[in-house]
Amino acid sequence: MPIEGLATQLRKGVIEYCVLAMLRDSPRYGGELVQMLRNQGGLLTSEGTIYPLLSRMRAEDLVDTEWREAPAGSPRRYYRLTKAGQRAVVEFQREWVRFRVTVDGIFGDRGGR
């Protein structure tokens, strides 16, 4: 697999859980999530694609939504973790740590310095 494709696949695999993790502390609206991801750099190449993702996670009952008034303009749809969403975050974190430790163990000190 070309390395560019690999990066895309990795992003696709983790973005959903990163978004869920960003909702752990408080409900957030789409624009807020986009800004947070922008600050983290590189995870979201096309910012608009977060909305299909959020919509799917809502259909899967990982998040639910509520409308809240915005200081200006139209009301915002806030996304909030459901119980299933919380479980998914915890499970991903466990898997991710195991995965990272395994890969780091194989690459050792020679990895990407």
């Binding site: 190449t45 096309s46 910012e47 608009g48 694609t49 909305y51 299909p52 993702l53 919509s55 799917r56 259909a59 899967e60 009952d61």
Partner: peptide
């Protein structure tokens, strides 16, 4: 540009719609 090419956003929406079996 940052929001993304409409085709790309729609492509993501299509990928996301096929996946879930929950509904």
């Amino acid at each position: 540009d940052r929001v993304g090419d409409p085709g790309e956003v729609a492509g993501a929406a299509r990928d996301e719609t096929v996946e879930p079996q929950v509904q």
